[in-house]
Design a protein around this nucleic acid. Structure first.
Lengths: 348, 348
DNA sequence: CTGAAAGCGCTAACAT
DNA sequence: ATGTTAGCGCTTTCAG
């Protein structure tokens, strides 16, 4: 570094006009070098690039966006809690970066904040919005549609048919886990849900209870009151204290399931010998040796890719896309092995 | 909804000019209603607001940013892996939302991508950058300083004195954990680091080894080769296979520590009876019953608040701020209780 | 291949 | 209290 090689005008940033003046070309030529380099003579381009480097010029994306009406920014509206959403967020960020898009993050803890959040989203004129939260109801989703803004609901069964959506196959996933339990001989099963008002919870419970009913097994529902570890822990503790334990507990989410398992074992109930446990999501921790949870692994990267496609290939807007992707059963040691193992299925 | 209440011009968005024409005032008046409502007569304001609502007008933040030279956007450059960074990210997002700032997320997996990422950051003319990654070296940090852009390094000891930074007190945190181990009677301690080249790893090890040395205890270093669960698992497995186990293993991070614990117990080594284990970070999972890890809890919300202050109160730029915040020892059941318990200290 | 000119939608003097 | 005006930095015709 030669000291004065960075921009000399302290504070103010360098513009294409500065570069143009320095080289002795027009501002438009400088702009072209950065937008359509092939439309500029190699010689001119080289001189412009040199001057830009010397002055420390970097194109202003804000100005570009104002003119081009595209920001290359995608907004993600995500609940601010939960292991699962954090992993989804990371996947989105990575996938968007590959497509030269940035992720503007809007997180919220209280569904009531959602209106404000969506107002902010609109202000920034993002190119699209990813709505990832179980707690947005269909009415709100419908209202969003008044904006001519590409949108995709991620893992929200309630969004089906209302806004474009991408989800894992909650119903079939739970059915498969249920069938596995039946195969292992479970005759009494309990279900621990997160929040009963969310469509995710409802869809998963429906899948589980119907598959079990098909085998003549009942499946009473207990609401944990949330999706966190402590909710699962509390729900399982109550079940132990109530005294009657089933052969298996199907839990609506992995983080809940970890709490369920710890609560059981803290009270001397052995998993899977006394009670089997299944989860849902396939968090990284599910494959940690400490839990080694039987669960339904969501193909997060695939879901995310599909969601981005729906968002960006918005052209064929004749129908409302509703993508459902199958998950994979992960057999861990929280369930016993079945006598007739279910053949592993692929998603696609 | 009356059907035609949303904006009628399909595709193009409604501008302040549209609203002005509809009400019969100037464009500037409309702008004022949204920027400085008190400077507009209540009557006019009401009419403008009504028209805005009817037409579906939302101010364009991009245009505002171009003019005002402030985007109200903070960029976060965060590694795309690891439980710890995900939790930090969530905390930043929430804290910035409270200050009416948005978070533009740039995640990267390979340090080599950093140059590209930083170029993107610059293009978006964000109001500040949070650099959160152990793997940015001092040289790169120094180069960043050529941009007249508020910046704060989060939990990167290497940044001290080079760029403004906010960190937990790694050294003192490890010392406290080490003293606790000494108090429990540990005479042989091993240290499992993440990646030896990072300043975080070095600082933590220095604190641990020096505090142990003060008590006459040696503390050989083993590199896990990463910060993930599997790295910790592998490192501990090797130690067990090598045959000589210490009284305690100090681990550089919680996620690593979970792996260490699971590897030990998988091989019949009891924690804490055979070997004690300590972590560092204070992830939510550390307090899960399954692990109940003794660790140093980082006050993430406090660290994040400080970082944002450093970023936004950039006025007094006479010195390079270097904030260090103390953490809290969390005593779990992965260490035995000490005969002389260390009085709990507060941070501040 | 390059330059001139007209905005994108808003803010912030300044004028009325 | 409201209107007028001049840009913010760039993209994009349209001429030359």
């Amino acid at each position: 570094m030669t000291g004065r090689s960075a921009q000399s005008r302290a504070g103010g940033s360098v513009t294409s006009i500065d570069v143009a003046a320095h080289v002795g070309v027009s501002q438009a030529t400088v702009a072209r070098v950065f937008a359509n380099p092939e439309k500029v003579a190699p010689d001119t381009r080289a001189r412009v690039e040199a001057a830009a480097a010397e002055l420390g010029y970097v194109p202003n994306a804000i100005a570009r966006s104002l003119k081009s009406q595209r920001t290359n920014i995608i907004a993600a509206v995500v609940p601010s809690v939960g292991e699962y959403w954090q992993s989804v967020l990371t996947a989105f960020s990575r996938a968007l970066a590959e497509r030269d898009r940035q992720l503007l993050l809007f997180s919220f803890s209280d569904p009531a904040q959602l209106e404000d959040v969506l107002a902010s989203v609109t202000q920034y004129r993002v190119d699209g919005v990813i709505l990832a939260s179980a707690s947005i109801d269909a009415g709100r989703l419908a209202r969003m549609q008044t904006q001519p803004l590409p949108i995709v609901a991620f893992n929200q069964p309630a969004a089906s048919g209302v806004v474009p959506s991408v989800s894992v196959d909650n119903d079939e996933g739970m059915r498969r886990l249920a069938r596995h339990l039946v195969d292992t001989g479970a005759a009494e099963v309990a279900y621990v849900g997160g929040t009963a008002t969310t469509s995710t919870d409802q869809t998963r419970y429906r899948g589980a209870s119907q598959a079990l009913a098909d085998a003549g097994v009942a499946c009473p529902y207990t609401e944990a009151g949330g999706w966190g570890y402590e909710h699962g822990y509390g729900a399982a503790r109550s079940m132990v204290e109530a005294g009657r334990l089933p052969d298996a507990i199907m839990v609506a989410g992995d983080e809940l399931a970890f709490g369920v398992i710890d609560a059981l074992e803290d009270r001397g109930v052995s998993v899977p010998d006394d009670v089997m446990v299944t989860g849902f999501d396939g968090l990284p921790q599910a494959s940690w040796a400490g839990y080694d949870l039987t669960t339904l692994t969501q193909p997060v990267d695939l879901l995310v890719d599909r969601a981005i496609e729906v968002l960006l290939d918005d052209a064929d807007a004749t129908t409302v896309p509703d993508v459902v992707v199958a998950g994979d059963v992960r057999l861990g040691r929280t369930t016993k092995s079945s006598s007739t193992p279910e053949p592993s299925e692929n998603h696609g």
